[in-house]
Amino acid sequence: MARGDDTDGALRIELTAGLTVPAAADVAWDDLAAASSSANIFYEPWLARAAAVLPEAGGPMVLMAWIDAPAAPPRLAGLLVLQRRAGWGGRIGVAVQNWDQRARALGEPLVRAGYEHAFWQAALDFLGQRRRMGHYLRLSALIADSPSTRALHDVLAARKRHATVTRSFERALLCGGSSSAEYIGANIRKKVLKEQRRLRNRLEEQGGLVFDQLAPAAAIDPWIDELFRLEMSGWKGREGVAAAADVATERCFRAVLRAAHERRRLDFRRLSVGGRTIALLANIEAGDTAFQLKIAYDEDYAAFSPGVLIEMDYLDYALDTRRLARVDSCARPNHPMIDRIWADRLPIVSLAVPFDRWSSRLACAAIDTLRKLRDKRARPVATDC
């Protein structure tokens, strides 16, 4: 067991098969999500259970670190959804990893602020003693500079071990702290703003440009149907990555959107012209943080940049009305649209973490060697041309 950073209580690790936990643990899970030093909607219980229908989501386990303080009700210090899968590149043994499926854009554990070091001490000890769980711990899509990730590196350094970086990139992030006018003035070129005004004026001429938001008591299914229709009509449908591309994915995202709406945590907004929907944007909030779950637009109106227009409308709302601390785009790196209007970047990293045994260290060393060979082959060759 490990001591909490700010308490005398000890941490007790419990591992459950599947995502169903006792009612008391479910309440504690929700409480932990609200108190976590880094918000992560994708490992909250309601969203995780909606994603469990995906074919690649099989075999999840919930690792819970309990605070058993004297004369106090038990609370969760940390929680991470796990699964066993083939190791890095499908070549390095079997790893125990943070739960990964197509609806997940972030792999951060939920850790109560102040318990980051204690959580990783207890979790690594617990997993390292169970050889059948995996040869090493694979952690994907972590925030590189989060309190949890920094604590993990500290704990490993104290044990004279280190994590191998298997992937790193940055994606667009919107940071609060300023008004939308200040943000736009500092980060978006006047030429771009002039073009946006021109496009809005041209749309107004076609019968009226309307930005609206799904009301808390309104029926959500018609909005979901329209979102899925727009996705299927565009490049996501052609490439088979739209929410409605298969039954399981549609069921998953429909359940996520409904659940977020029921919890009053869904910001669902629409852009229409002459009564025709040309863009939809769905965001899920967690305290002062939001995550962009889905965006879709009508490709017949692509020349008017409807995705940019609805994002700019949301920027005003996020910074001026909601005053959010940050919005994670959940977008791929170097996204051609969102990178142009959101200036901040969120560093994302994936790690291979060895346990305290020689076979685990050897597996992570092999991963490091293979990664370096891969990067060397991918590096462009300099020429004298």
Results as ranks from 00 to 15, higher is better:
Ala363Arg: 03
Ser146Asp: 05
Val381Ile: 12
Leu193Trp: 09
Leu137Asp: 06
Ser140Pro: 11
Gly240Arg: 09
Arg12Ile: 10
Pro354Val: 12
Gln129Thr: 03
Ala318Tyr: 09
Asn40Thr: 05
Arg130Ser: 07
Ala51Lys: 04
Ser360Asp: 05
Ser37Leu: 07
Ile341Asn: 05
Arg322Lys: 14
Asp320Gly: 08
Ile184Gly: 11
Pro22Ile: 02
Gly93Pro: 01
Leu315Glu: 02
Leu47Gln: 14
His261Trp: 05
Arg138Tyr: 10
Ala245Arg: 06
His117Asp: 15
Ile278His: 00
His153Thr: 10
Arg332Gln: 15
Leu324Ile: 01
Ala255Ile: 09
Pro147Gly: 04
Ala303Thr: 09
Arg276Leu: 12
Val192Lys: 15
Pro22Phe: 00
Glu239Ser: 15
Trp223His: 12
Ala86Glu: 14
Asp316Lys: 15
Pro354Phe: 12
Ala57His: 01
Ala48Phe: 07
Cys330Glu: 11
Asp267His: 15
Ala122Val: 04
Tyr136Thr: 12
Ala219Phe: 12
Leu63Trp: 05
Ala77Thr: 02
Gln292Met: 13
Arg270Tyr: 08
Arg131Trp: 10
Ala245Val: 02
Tyr115His: 15
Val308Arg: 08
Tyr301Ile: 08
Tyr317His: 15
Glu250Val: 00
Glu285Cys: 14
Gly234Cys: 04
Ala34Trp: 06
Ile13Tyr: 07
Leu11Cys: 06
Leu199Thr: 04
Ala352Ile: 08
Gly114Trp: 01
Ser233Pro: 11
Phe42Pro: 08
Trp120Gly: 08
Lys236Leu: 01
Val256Thr: 09
Leu203Ala: 02
Ala158Ser: 13
Ala158Glu: 13
Thr149Phe: 00
Gly78Pro: 03
Gly176Leu: 02
Ile284Asn: 01
Gly4Asn: 14
Val256Asn: 04
Asp68Thr: 01
Ala72Tyr: 07
Thr7Met: 11
Met64Phe: 13
Ala113Thr: 12
Met133Pro: 07
Gly90Gln: 01
Arg131Ser: 13
Met312Pro: 10
Tyr136Ser: 10
Gln213Ala: 15
Leu63Lys: 07
Lys236Glu: 01
Leu271Asp: 05
Trp342Tyr: 11
His261Met: 04
Asn201Asp: 14
Ile310Asp: 00
Leu106Ser: 13
Ala23Tyr: 06
Leu227Lys: 03
Ala244Ser: 03
Ser305Lys: 08
Ser168Arg: 14
Ser146Phe: 03
Met312Asp: 13
Val155Glu: 06
Arg377His: 14
Arg200Asn: 14
Asp344Phe: 07
Phe228Leu: 03
Trp342Lys: 09
Arg374Lys: 13
Leu266Tyr: 00
Arg258Glu: 12
Val81His: 13
Arg323Gln: 08
Asp356Ala: 06
Pro306Leu: 03
Ala48Trp: 03
Pro109Ile: 02
Leu11Ile: 06
Ala151Gln: 10
Ser180Gln: 11
Ala118Val: 04
Leu124Pro: 08
Ile224Val: 09
Arg12Ser: 13
Ala86Val: 12
Leu54Cys: 02
Arg379Glu: 15
Ala242Pro: 00
Ser233Arg: 11
Gly287Ala: 03
Leu309Arg: 07
Ala17Pro: 08
Ser148Pro: 05
Val111Ser: 06
Ser36Glu: 09
Ile188Glu: 09
Ile341Ser: 11
Ser178Thr: 15
Leu174Trp: 06
Ala71Asp: 15
Thr16Met: 15
Asp221Met: 10
Gly59Arg: 05
Ala282Gln: 06
Ala363Gln: 08
